[in-house]
Design a protein around this nucleic acid. Structure first.
Lengths: 144, 144
DNA sequence: GTTACTCCCGTAGTCAGCTACGGAATCAAC
DNA sequence: GTTGATTCCGTAGCTGACTACGGGAGTAAC
């Protein structure tokens, strides 16, 4: 299924994950990424699992999860009991659905404004800006 | 929609805008809100235009604009830069749509795992955990 | 006219999420 | 076996967006 587990230094891992060495070390301090045991010498080596975890963190972050929330998601991965995992999964699912609907409201609002902008291009008044000034009151898309 | 220009102290303005006094003062320091001239005594007074600008900031923030970007939008406020405003809006719209589709993918994946969990509740093995342990990359959760 | 807010203003602290610095130790190349 | 990059580790600094503090002045209520 997958490739061989490569052995990477933190620098190689960082490059593979598209982030800085210091960021990985920061995640280690936050407990999001494990520090592998030092071998004979004194330089740690990382495998593809570590890389997958960094990908996961980056993705979840881009989706709007905080590092604390990502820590919560990652405890699912660390093997608690099935019931606990399900509860956490359900909580996250609710959370994700809330984010989606919130973003969809934003999308509709922005889309409407940009469309108006397009239809009125020659005009002096910009509908996007005037709507922002009016606080989007007519759109009924504002947050709670 | 009242057009009467009220005269407000910063505290009243803050309450009307639903934010703290310190936040308004912070926006003034950032150059997002003008500091009106002090009248005879030494307390500034604000009108509905100031309130409208605070609404603008809050709404644009909700739409995902940073304060710097909002500053940019505010320079377009005279309405003659409709095209530029539209471009900024379109960029944000693209961004929002990317986030939505990514969240929808993670929603489907999480939902599937939680469902599996529910059907197998008595089991020792937790399908959600094992799926996560097998690597979330398989579930196509990563951004493009 | 005293008390209790509120305003003004500068500065400093907070929180999340990095990012940089500095001084070892270690490893890879020549 | 020396050079030069990389790692290790702790600690400090930075950015964005606030939020709080402190002390003096203005203002409102009784």
């Amino acid at each position: 299924m997958s490739k061989k587990t490569r052995s990477m230094t933190i620098g190689v891992l960082a490059k593979a994950a598209g982030m800085g060495v210091e960021t990985i070390r920061y995640y280690q301090r936050r407990g999001l990424v494990a520090e592998p045991e030092k071998p004979y010498g004194s330089i740690r080596h990382y495998d593809d699992q570590a890389l997958a975890r960094l990908h996961f963190i980056r993705t979840a972050q881009w989706l709007g999860f905080s590092l604390d929330e990502i820590g919560g998601l990652l405890t699912l991965q660390d093997g608690t009991h099935c019931d606990e995992a399900r509860v956490l999964g359900e909580q996250k699912l609710t959370n994700v659905r809330q984010k989606i609907s919130s973003l969809q409201r934003i999308e509709r609002a922005l889309d409407g404004l940009v469309q108006e902008c397009c239809t009125q291009r020659g005009n002096v008044e910009c509908p996007l800006i005037t709507s922002l000034q009016d606080g989007l009151e007519n759109t009924r898309l504002l947050p709670d």
